[in-house]
């Protein structure tokens, strides 16, 4: 692989990571808008439903924790199976409002980006 291709690959990796990080928060909020879910369910749903967004497993939990700290999510423990206690995440009121605004911005962004990308020769 040439030096130039390596650089392009590195840049792509960096850019993808940044996009993924922002999109993952929105995707998690959207998933939790339907129903409460625990960490592993969220990881699996992201893996099953998306290709680009299937994050490294270890990064989903810290993301959930950060969103909980920012009051976008609330959580409750379920100890029904003592061998596998589950921490369920729910959307807070603040999270619901954030989701609505983030979805709007995302739609606007995709529309605008599609328009710009259309001009790029492939």
């Amino acid at each position: 692989m040439s030096e130039q291709s390596k650089n392009v690959e590195k840049e792509l990796e960096r850019w993808a990571k940044e996009v993924r990080r922002g999109a993952a928060s929105l995707a998690i909020l959207a998933l939790l808008n339907k129903r409460r879910a625990y960490g592993y369910e969220i990881v699996k749903e992201l893996e099953d439903r998306t290709e680009f967004l299937s994050l490294e497993q270890g990064t989903v939990y810290p993301l959930l924790r950060r969103m909980e700290k920012r009051d976008l999510l609330t959580s409750e423990w379920d100890h029904e199976d003592p061998a596998k206690p589950k921490k369920y995440y729910l959307l807070s009121d603040q999270g619901e409002r954030a989701l609505a605004q983030m979805s709007e911005i995302w739609s606007l962004l995709t529309d605008e980006m599609n328009e710009i990308i259309m001009e790029v020769p492939t």
């Binding site: 625990y38 960490g39 592993y40 990881v43 497993q57 939990y61 423990w77 921490k87």
Partner: peptide
Amino acid sequence: EETLMEIRTHLIEEAEN
């Protein structure tokens, strides 16, 4: 401890999966 409990459940479910 809560973080570790969450990761433990993840690992058990992933291993079972």
